[in-house]
Design a protein around this nucleic acid. Structure first.
Length: 456
RNA sequence: GUGAUUGUAGCUCAGCAGGUUAGAGCGCUGGAUUGUGGUUCCAGAGGUCGUGGGUUCGAGCCCCAUCUAUCACCCCA
């Protein structure tokens, strides 16, 4: 049986049209990054497992793609480990590399490793694929692109402001309606302190993150289930029910968590951030969302998340401040903020909303029919002249039937077809056919260039 | 990792309560038109019904397993 070839679960092939559209997104994002003075870097697709493991929580470790060691690794596994069927320990023995899970942790590794050559504050961006062994579903893939911008080595809140501006500019250029949600991890810590469960901040944040999805009752149930005491959960309730404008919410929460120094610091940070943002003319609505938690446990200050207003797809951009990510790699006291644009989800949003401009599907401008050897010799220098003039063109490689060549040009949506056979060669001209109208005209080379230049 | 739905020609789908040689539209190939595409007409090719087992006289249809895609949970871009 000739079994059909296939690709791994959650991965995709991209056709030329899709690539043109994806590149439109990447180019847009990249141009905004450059506009703000960020510099591009790349890191390897695979990292040592030791730099990846333990950075994304227990769940994250499970979602890492691990790469099998080369050689006869099985021989080195002690029999008792195999007998125990202890996957975790066996994994350690047979795999020491993994595919990157995001761009932030490899970036932290990069910064620590190359700290002496970098200029701080270091502003970098990075557009590369990441891999997660997740089960694919709507808007979720096992291989997808992230477009990260980070500034590391500065704890100024101006960096947060700049990131918000970047988010605003990118989505303005892509013509997507979005809402930016902001929260601060210090406020969440303050809440946990206030209700007397400072140790359980992770469980608490994960639970309240689900508030708009499962409702307040279920959030509270989940907290019970995770061992948070009933009294603490009761205290949490009024916090979750906060409503009003950003400032109103801030003021209310400030009174509730006034005993927590960390919490108040968080509130101060958010107020400062909003203060700056009010001075700028932003297109997107910015909303303080105290239920925004984001699972990644390395965030320590601001947390950002962007949601598309017109499509139900989860967050399309996210990020935050991490004070000590490089500490894990031996360089403490370096603070960074960053956000990550989810290019694939942004793509899905734009597809659904039909937001791609027409030009992203353009192909060759001029097509030259191949009539045979003599004609090809006549055409080759002309084809080159067209390219020199800045127009993309191609000469069909085979002297196939005219019908076939015309059909090819038609399918590729090429607007101009040039034919040059015996007659044209004799008179030193070219026959130019405009595909859309079907109109045909004998022209000189300079007339041809002029004609295609008029197209817009 | 848990739970559910799905799978028939390149694509979108039909397929009568399990019953002989599995259909349509679009696409593809060739011709009408040997220097003319997109429109029209004519002809043709293409499927071991996701894969592997099982039930049955007989399975595209029923059962089990497996893979894929989709959806929800977990988590996340």
């Amino acid at each position: 049986m000739s079994q059909k070839p296939s690709i791994p679960k959650g991965t995709r092939d991209f056709f030329p049209l899709l690539m043109a559209r994806r590149n439109f997104i990447f180019d847009t994002i990249k141009s905004v990054f450059l506009l703000y003075g960020y510099q591009e870097i790349e890191t390897p697709a695979m990292e040592n497992l030791s730099t990846l493991m333990g950075k994304y929580g227990e769940e994250g470790d499970k979602l890492l793609f691990k790469i099998l060691n080369s050689g006869d690794f099985a021989a080195k596994i002690p029999d008792e480990l195999i007998a125990d069927k202890d996957s975790a320990k066996i994994t350690n023995m047979i795999s020491e590399k993994g595919l990157r899970y995001d761009l932030t942790v490899p970036f932290a590794r990069f910064v620590v490793q190359n700290r002496n050559e970098l200029i701080f504050p270091f502003k970098r961006f990075q557009i590369q694929p990441v891999w997660r062994a997740d089960r694919p579903q709507k808007g979720r893939y096992r291989e997808f692109y992230q477009c990260d911008v980070d500034v590391i080595g500065s704890d100024s809140l101006l960096n947060e402001v700049e990131l918000v501006q970047i988010v605003d500019e990118v989505f303005k250029r892509l013509n997507i309606n979005v809402t930016l949600k902001i929260n601060n991890r210090k406020i969440l810590a303050g809440i946990a302190e206030t209700i007397g469960e400072p140790e359980r901040i992770t469980e608490i944040t994960i639970a309240i993150d689900k508030l708009d999805k499962i409702g307040i009752e279920n959030v509270m149930k989940e907290l019970f289930a995770n061992g948070v005491s009933p009294e603490s959960v009761e205290k949490l309730k009024p916090i979750l029910e906060l409503s009003g404008t950003n400032i109103e919410k801030l003021n209310k929460i400030a009174t509730v968590i006034s005993s927590s120094e960390t919490g108040l610091k968080g509130i101060e940070e958010v107020k400062t951030l909003f203060g700056y943002l009010n001075k700028l003319q932003l297109n997107l609505p910015v909303e303080l969302d105290l239920t925004l938690a984001r699972g990644l446990n390395y965030y320590t200050g601001a947390i950002f998340e962007v949601k598309a207003s017109d499509v139900e797809i989860g967050s399309i951009t996210g990020g935050g401040r991490y004070d000590d990510l490089t500490g894990i790699f031996g360089l403490p006291g370096v603070s960074g903020v960053g956000i990550s644009f989810g290019a694939d989800r942004i793509f899905d949003v734009m597809e659904q909303l039909n937001l791609f401009p027409e030009e992203t599907s353009t192909t060759t401008t001029v097509f030259f029919v191949n009539f045979g050897e003599k004609e090809t010799a006549y055409l080759l220098p002309i084809v080159n002249e067209i390219r020199k003039a800045g127009y993309s063109c191609e000469l069909y490689p085979d002297a196939a039937k005219l019908k076939k060549q015309m059909a090819y040009a038609n399918r590729k949506n090429i607007p101009y077809v040039v034919m040059a056979g015996e007659n044209e060669m004799k008179s030193g001209t070219l026959t130019l056919k405009t595909m859309e109208s079907g109109e045909q005209k004998e022209v000189s080379l300079s007339q041809l260039i002029e004609r295609i230049g008029h197209r817009s």
